[in-house]
Design a binder for these strands. Structure first.
Lengths: 217, 217
DNA sequence: GTCTATAGCCCGATAGAC
DNA sequence: GTCTATCGGGCTATAGAC
């Protein structure tokens, strides 16, 4: 199997991401991870000489995904643009959920995201506000300009903590359970009563179509 | 010191609560807890024969505090009632923050709150909606009745995750840092533009006065 | 590159003297 | 009630054969 070196490393990273999301970073032992990968524990240490190194690798992937998402700007069709942005945001929060959720677990020097989160959140506020402003400019959303930033921040919070919220409510949140869809619908309640009927319908339709929730790895 | 038996047990519970909130449930070892209490580790096992027993004791306190808060109904002055409710909710979320935040850490059989959280959240929605309806009935809030429940749910989410949000933004969230105040102000942005000017001013004043953030132990 | 074997550490929990 | 001393177990990480 020596020819699949890259393959093994890749498999470790992907398996770790899924396992951390499901069980929590702190609850996954290296033994359990190795077993889930179908390799011996020692082999795991060959590819990542410390548990922290594996975490950093995942952090880098996350950072890359975020930059791609943050580059999404409102286009000619602000409704379609907004739907696309929503999907990207939720893919992110779901795919790397443990990075946010389990920050306490990785020994306090939790830099992987703690150092970047403030900047990412700020830029997300700005991005969401820009998309919402595009809806306002298009005459599709009736909202005071000077209250758009508050709306963007509140929308970010709802999107960010939606999965945790539904989990706390006792609802399943893993892939295919519709928790992402419910989160998107919940965030819509922040402003849909001020939204153009057609635009609201299109957003609802777009969210309903996100049934095939695939991870943009 | 044998006369202070009850005192020691009490001190353990209170120290544990504070320590769990600060450092995270999983990050506090029995050794560290004993040290913080100023007692030997063995003595700790005398009072709580298992780590889980200590957690349950804290869970019971939390449950009791919640029931007291849930009993708050809108009074003759709906603005004052709402301010009082907000303070109680935040005392709760702050005082027992780790119970929500660190659910992953206590070995999956996380019953202390996981079993009750759905019911508590549902009743909180209902309670908040009742208080908001009282504001509408008093002519102080302009909001469609059939959208009040969504507002109550969104307000609960913002209140519930406000501290986590500000922590992620890199802001301090411990007592006396004003994070609770910021959370309350953030939740106000959900509907203050539809609020009577005088009522809005009174709520802002009430929140500003919550500087002396004391825990209703 | 992958494996087996094991070192070393910290933790939760127990035993028993005072 | 409080202490000291210690056990057993699980975890991260290393050593070295294949």
């Amino acid at each position: 199997m020596k020819t699949r070196a890259k393959g093994t490393r890749e498999r470790i990273v992907e398996t770790a991401r899924a396992l951390f999301n499901e069980q929590g970073y702190g609850a996954v032992s290296t033994a359990g991870l190795a077993a889930a990968c179908g390799i011996a524990e020692g082999n795991l240490w060959y590819h990542f000489k410390t548990r922290r190194a594996l975490l950093d690798a995942l952090g880098e992937r996350f950072a890359a995904a975020i930059e791609v998402r943050l580059a999404l700007v409102p286009g000619a069709d602000p409704v379609a643009s907004y739907a696309r942005l929503l999907e990207a945001v939720m893919d992110e929060f779901r795919g790397f959920r443990f990075l946010y959720r389990d920050q306490r677990s990785y020994g306090e020097h939790a830099e992987p995201i703690a150092a970047h989160a403030p900047e990412w959140l700020e830029r997300t506020f700005v991005q969401l506000e820009a998309h919402l402003a595009a809806l306002v400019d298009g005459g599709l959303l009736d909202w005071p300009r000077d209250r758009l930033r508050d709306l963007a921040i509140n929308a970010t919070i709802i999107l960010r903590y939606g999965l945790e919220h539904y989990q706390e409510l006792g609802e399943p949140t893993l892939e295919g359970t519709g928790a992402v869809r419910r989160t998107l619908l919940r965030h819509l309640t922040l402003f849909e009563h001020q939204l153009d009927r057609g635009a609201a319908a299109r957003l609802h339709a777009a969210i309903a179509e996100m049934g095939a929730e695939a991870l943009a790895a």
